[in-house]
Design a binder for these strands. Structure first.
Length: 568
RNA sequence: CGGGGCGUAGCGCAGUCUGGUAGCGCACUUGACUGGGGGUCAAGUGGUCGCAGGUUCAAAUCCUGCCGUCCCGACCA
């Protein structure tokens, strides 16, 4: 393809709005243009990459036995009302009415549609297990679109939905999808981790996220230095703490005027932060709930949300509520003599001789011990904190480390949530109706384009991995417009390569060499041939195969042969 | 939704504080030179200064409201 005929609007100056490297490079290399917040046009070059990724996903999904179909973007409200999600979803679900004033939404996901199809068309256990997928545009009116196509409102997703008659059969499909996702990301040459995750809005029991590692990632993932434990920070746990040490101090109240933060308390009393416990107060359905954490730890909002009796969604109590419930202002709250319900993180429960607020402004207790100075029931001890780097890993092997990741895929064990709500049933061997167990499997196609660039770039531009490059070869024809020998050699070579099945981008523009080189670096095709008068006088073109490779001088036919051979 | 920033030519920005002829770089057009890493010179094209009100003899500039967009926090592929 001739570059002069393709819209590849590369730009030198970085748009000020773009913050992360993939977003900048996608704009600079002419892959995308923004239309509105979270909405993008895919230009020819960008779209070719999307198609490459789709092709890999399609191949691997097909290999795993899934069948492709395509569901509508526009979905009727009735189906969403059946599962209760029409009410539950909130403003992220884009709703509208048709001319007959019937309610519709733009599909953010397709559990309702596929389950509706399933209940109409599948009636026998003999047809199970089955797994349907589509690659399609989704719309989610995100609270905050950001980082270009990384978090867009309209995006392309591969979504799959499986149905199984029994748990063992479901598990086999789930494991196969886990492997399938790994294969896809490996083929894309991505450094990734599969981690245990929280299921969020979709619901269900277990899930795994597939994270592409990148410092710009929005998620924190936790992994063990030994063994294969890995989880999203929202869900990660550490090994249980050693049993609480014996009390060595007596409990006493100390004056701490004006001291309200853990750092101040620790400094004033000359004690390690780990010896101090901090209190957080959330709203419960029947009044405030006090949570005790070790001073150096932080609350995990997802875990805290699951505290029995906690308000949904999680909210913190304000100063007035705290004062009413404890008799003190924030900064002086503690568990001793507390009337409000109390939840204690295991690490806090395993701290002896601790320091805490005295529920009296300007006062703390030190030398406090659970059991001796205040009661603590097992039911009150609940893991509600974020693990920290260096914590012992669960299972006792190694310690926990943190990484930043981009969530590229998420697979869910849905159980019977949707099949039950929508009355999907098949008859089993004995002729009895059974409700199938479902799974769903998402992968962000357009997000993956950005994720790949995050991992594959240098100062000059993108470095596409071979399987994803928008073209196989970039031919830079220097002085194409004026030199007939360059033109002839370039045209011949391009035709030869195309005939050999290689997608070729021929830079035939009337640009100076420097511009062509700079643009080629930006666009980042892995194979490059430079054709100029200088080389042609010796009967040579220059050929670079692979991003790091050296330029080699070869005869045009030789270069063509080499490249077409590689293709086989 | 809460907090902050920004809206001036296609892009990147200056001008706004202190009101008085709308500017610079890149890009684009034409010509000449140049021709292996974003080249040089010359001549051009292009702007209701986000929108609506207000203050003023006079508003890009001051005031009010709205809209858009980006960044930071709770959600997600």
């Amino acid at each position: 393809m001739r570059q002069s005929q393709l819209l590849i609007p590369t730009i030198k100056e970085v748009p000020a709005d773009a913050d992360i490297v993939s977003h900048r490079l996608m704009l600079r290399a002419g892959l995308i243009r923004q239309v509105a917040s979270g909405l993008y046009t895919w230009l020819p070059l960008g779209l070719r990459v999307v198609r490459k990724i789709e092709a890999i996903i399609r191949e691997e999904m097909d290999r795993s036995g899934a069948q492709e179909l395509s569901m509508p973007v526009v979905q009727p409200a009735e189906l969403w009302r059946e599962t209760g999600r029409w009410e539950k979803m909130g403003p992220e679900l884009a709703r509208f009415q048709d001319r007959h004033e019937r309610d519709f939404c733009l599909g953010p996901t397709h559990e309702e549609i596929i389950t509706d199809l399933f209940r109409r068309e599948v009636h026998s256990y003999r047809q199970l297990p089955c797994n349907f997928y589509q690659i399609q545009t989704k719309f989610r009116d995100e609270v905050r679109p950001r980082f270009g196509v990384m978090r867009a409102r309209e995006f392309v997703m591969k979504d799959a939905y499986s149905f199984a008659a029994d748990q063992a059969s479901f598990d086999a499909t789930y494991r196969e999808m886990h492997r399938c996702y790994s294969r896809i990301l490996m083929r894309m040459q991505l450094d990734f981790r599969a981690v245990e995750a929280d299921t969020g809005n979709i619901g269900g029991a277990n899930s795994h996220e597939f994270h592409v590692l990148a410092d710009s990632g929005e998620d924190t993932i936790v992994h063990a230095t030994e063994g294969d434990y890995a989880a999203n920070l929202e869900r990660a746990v550490s090994a249980p703490p050693p049993p609480c040490g014996a009390a060595t101090e007596t409990m006493r109240e100390v004056a701490t005027p004006g001291v309200t933060t853990i750092a101040q308390v620790a400094a004033l009393l000359d004690a390690p932060v780990t010896q101090c416990l901090k209190a957080l107060v959330i709203r419960g359905k029947k009044g405030p709930i006090v949570i005790m954490l070790r001073g150096d730890h932080e609350l995990n909002l997802i875990k805290a949300q699951k505290i029995p009796g906690a308000q949904q969604p999680l909210e913190f109590a304000d100063a007035a509520e705290i004062l009413a419930a404890t008799g003190a202002n924030p900064g002086s709250i503690g568990p001793v003599g507390l009337q409000a319900p109390l939840i204690v993180d295991p690490q806090a429960a395993a701290t002896a001789d601790f320091i805490c607020g005295a529920n009296r402004d300007g006062h703390h207790y030190r030398g406090v011990n659970w059991g001796r100075d205040l009661p603590l029931a097992d039911s009150q001890v609940l893991d509600v904190r974020n693990v920290a780097p260096g914590d012992p890993a669960p299972g006792g092997q190694g310690e926990l480390r943190f990484l930043k990741g981009i969530e590229a895929g998420h697979i869910f064990q849905l159980g019977r949530t949707y099949s039950e709500a929508m009355q999907a049933k098949v008859l089993d061997r004995d002729g009895k109706p059974v409700t199938p167990i479902m799974g769903c499997y998402g992968m962000g196609v357009t997000r993956l384009v950005a994720a790949v660039i995050e991992q594959h770039h240098n100062a000059g531009g993108i470095l596409w991995p071979d399987p994803l490059a928008p073209f196989d070869i970039h031919i830079l024809a220097l002085n194409y417009g004026k030199s007939s020998i360059v033109r002839e050699a370039a045209d011949n070579l391009a035709a030869q390569l195309e005939a050999g099945g290689l997608a070729t981008l021929l830079d035939d523009r009337a640009e100076r060499p420097g511009v062509k080189f700079a643009d080629a670096d930006l666009i980042g095709l892995p194979r490059r041939i430079v054709i100029g008068d200088r080389g042609l006088r010796e009967g040579r073109v220059e050929c670079r195969i692979g991003h790091g490779a050296e330029m080699e001088a070869l005869a045009p036919n030789e270069a063509a042969a080499r490249l077409t051979d590689l293709q086989r």
